[in-house]
């Protein structure tokens, strides 16, 4: 197997044939931000956060899909790239309804981490406040499309790893949405195996376990009736209503 030697940010590195720039960077602890990329899934090349500059070309290249060639000179952290990455996160922030304070993944969210990483202190674009839907029909999980960044990790993990292909994308442009099967409530999806892989790989709080969100705890006071009845009448029977 041939080895390729190339330069990232002034240091020389070697890559195996078939490695991408991102893999080599990750192996060598060179930080390149990513969002749609997830090791183990196919590369999608859509978030554009990992774009790098390659000397000799005017274009920018996504590190996740670009393979280094011999003597290639790559820059991962120029002023221009930093500016563009920040703008991409800024666009994402304006696109969805991202309210960290009431989000289930507040503090361990990849979008939030990215915002810190690119030093996003404010958003110059008007917030779009889209009217997105939330689907809580599944017995174990919830999808809140307000928090979705359309990275399609869920689509890919379901198709490539679980082989169920529950998720897909409907609509186009700014109206794109993740849908279950043929756009039906997740809970009624016959193809979903309830494996939960999509929930694990989601970078934001768009997919989450039921019972994890703010305000989801439900109190059950019906048991009092049961106990009182049992004590007073010595009837240890639950009514249908109480059993609910």
């Amino acid at each position: 197997m041939s080895v390729i030697t190339f330069t990232i940010d002034g240091e020389q590195y070697s890559a195996k044939e078939g490695d991408t720039i991102l893999q080599v960077a990750r192996d060598n602890k060179i930080p390149i931000p990513t969002l749609c990329y997830l090791e183990g899934l196919s590369t999608f090349g859509a978030c554009r956060l990992c774009v790098v500059e390659i000397e000799g070309s005017q274009k920018l290249f996504p590190a996740c899909t670009t393979k280094p060639t011999e003597s290639m000179i790559v820059h991962t952290n120029t002023v221009k790239l930093k500016k563009y990455r920040k703008m991409i996160v800024e666009l994402l922030a304006s696109e969805g309804n991202h309210q960290c304070a009431v989000c289930v993944v507040n503090g361990h969210c990849e979008l939030q981490d990215l915002a810190y990483e690119v030093e996003l202190d404010h958003v110059r674009f008007p917030y779009l406040f889209p009217k997105k839907s939330l689907d809580a029909t599944h017995k174990d999980f919830v999808i809140d499309r307000n928090r979705c960044v359309l990275c399609t990790r869920c689509v890919r993990v379901c198709h490539e790893v679980e082989a169920a292909h529950v998720w897909d994308i409907a609509g186009r442009g700014i109206d794109c949405e993740i849908i279950a099967d043929l756009n039906q409530p997740w809970g009624t999806s016959p193809s979903c195996t309830s494996c939960g892989k999509c929930v694990r790989v989601c970078p934001t709080g768009a997919l989450f376990d039921k019972g994890a969100a703010v305000g989801e705890m439900q109190k059950e006071s019906g048991f009092i009736k049961f106990i009182v009845n049992a004590r007073n009448k010595h009837e240890w029977v639950r009514t249908a209503h109480e059993e609910e």
């Binding site: 859509a46 666009l91 994402l92 304006s94 960044v149 994308i169 186009r172 700014i174």
Partner: peptide, 15 residues
């Protein structure tokens, strides 16, 4: 006509 795959085009063209 943006397909919505990449962020710069999907959100950028809107703005």
């Amino acid at each position: 006509e943006s397909c919505g795959k990449c962020i710069p085009c999907r959100v950028g063209t809107k703005h």
